[in-house]
Design a protein around this nucleic acid. Sequence first.
RNA 1: GCCGAUGUAGCUCAGAUGGUAGAGCGCGUCCUUGGUAAGGACGAGGUCACCGGUUCAAUCCCGGUCAUCGGCUCCA
Length: 644
Amino acid sequence: MSSITVTLPDGSQQSHPAGISPLAIARSISPRLADDAVVAQVNGELRDLTRPLTENTELRILTSKDPQSLEVYRHSTAHLLAAAVLELFPETKLGIGPPIENGFYYDFDRPEPFTPEDLERIEKKMWEIQARDLPYERVWTKKDEGLSKYKDAWMKCELIQERAGDEFSEYTLGPQFIDFCRGPHVPSTKRIKAFKLLSVAGAYWKGDEKRKQLQRIYGTAWFSQKDLDGYLKMLEEAKKRDHRKLGQELELYMIDELAGPGLIFFLPKGATVRRVLEDWMRDAYVERGYDLVFTPHVARLDLWKTSGHANFYGENMFKPMELDDAEYQLKPMNCPGHILIYRSKPRSYRDLPVRLGELGTVYRYERSGTMHGLLRVRGFTQDDAHIFCTPEQIENEVVSCLEFARDVLHTFGFDKYEAELSTWDGGVSGKYDGAPELWALAEKSLRQATERLGWNARIMPDEAAFYGPKIDVKLVDAIGRKWQLSTVQFDFTLPRRFGLEFTGDDNRKHQPLMVHRALFGSVERFFGILTEHYAGAFPVWLAPVQATLLPISDRHAPFARQVLQELKAAGLRATIDERSEKVNMKIREAQLAKVPFMLVVGDKEVESGSVSVRNRRHGDQGAQPVSQFIAGAMKLITERTPFE
RNA sequence: GCCGAUGUAGCUCAGAUGGUAGAGCGCGUCCUUGGUAAGGACGAGGUCACCGGUUCAAUCCCGGUCAUCGGCUCCA
């Protein structure tokens, strides 16, 4: 028998008989490693631990510590799910079952819907199969043979036709189950220790809404029960922070059926937060050299024909309305309005850059079933600005936009964020608009801008908008979820469509470059993200009520009212709770309302002219003079401390 | 728009084989004046999402509509 040389990650080399499995090698290194092993990396490629090695190889044994092995593990759990479904519902046809972030899913075609009870049964069945300790066995099959074997499984046939070579691999799980699959998988079902089925949902075959709708079962899987519990706990925490729940509990906003879905009413408390946010943002615009404008909410449809939106964005717009003898359109975007302002007078290169900003409310038609609290609505306000400048100015402009975005993120205590640079395909498909020189210039300035900031932007090839490349900033919130936020986008199309120009120092007409940028994205959406990020406990500078006075008994009310006036005079948003309730009750309610400061006032305080401060996070802080409390609170407000 | 689930008091939820409903919290009145997360009593409050159908009778069964939730598609 011939032998092969196996090189391990530490550089050491071993000689083994050809045909030995990585699992056997792992066992020879240490039984513990063999137990922990999930998958092998053979010459850089992930492979089953049990698949024999036939040539000299560089071998790495991946354990639960390697992130790639979790994907394999989840993929294997998806197979376990499919096997369980087929045992319980043999008539079911299998679609695909990949690993996803935090778990896996599998798509099934079956006339009857899966019920929550079915899910429980399936999960039980999965544990049953798990206990059988079935190996995931790789089988090598010829294409034509395979096609006849799968003739009843239409989706698998389609996949084999598309993806398989002359021969392809399949994985079995016990005598019945076999699945067209590239693998690799964990060695056996015993390896799968912690999973849970979460939900069933409709999903189109291949994500195409014209194709058949399947039933997708979602699950989560982890190497240990502890990890699974941790994840389930995170889901619970996310549920507690859900802005729709907090929005109602804290009276921030509402949606009323009578008005329609996706249309937001800000209640007084939410409106206060929003007002502070917007005022802050508008001031920041002015400080950074933007000119603020206002544009109308409706305009002749002709404007939208000129911009091209009526044509390529029409699906997403509210229907035009008849008025006099013209059609008018509710605006889905702010750009055309800003463009009209730009071209309302001749511009010289000396005027550039022109930065026009607006908190502009737009209305877009979202299909029913897509609305989601504040995150996906039909009417929303963009903190929108358009920058018109020369090619020489563009890089600095992009840098200032990104700096602005970064400062915004820091203000709200988002310390982790990532940038994505979406580029075009080089023009091969013809689906992008604009000259290659423009694309080159724009992509270069975007890239250099991120480099100047020391950002490590991920390049997303072929992800640009058709009208220009862009940078998207994604933030990571307090419990680790990612949200798309700021965006800086080039637009080569609109300046041309509207014939924008400026006079250069050569006394000739030139077309300005146009950048579209939004930092919050949508104020409503950002408000929702903030609500979840802070779990409803807005920082003092944003809190709808910053301090509430809690007189212990009626005789303390006059002093409390006097303090209230002092707080208000200092500019604090303060209230008083004069009900004849016990102070425990008043504290409980203020605490649940997440008021940052509860100021208890009793005999001692009246006598000494002080307040006893209770902080919503840190509890009783003891008595302090009113002036001292005001100074402390004002400091938090002017510094916009994100977490007091 | 599509698949599935849900819709009962301001909120969170019970409820009956079909005979027009109940709790807790909240709200109102009164009592209580209490020092860091729920003091007590009484009371008001519902066309059981909406529109049809079946039935002697529908909140319950059937059909449709609307909305919400979990997803898909799309997206700020």
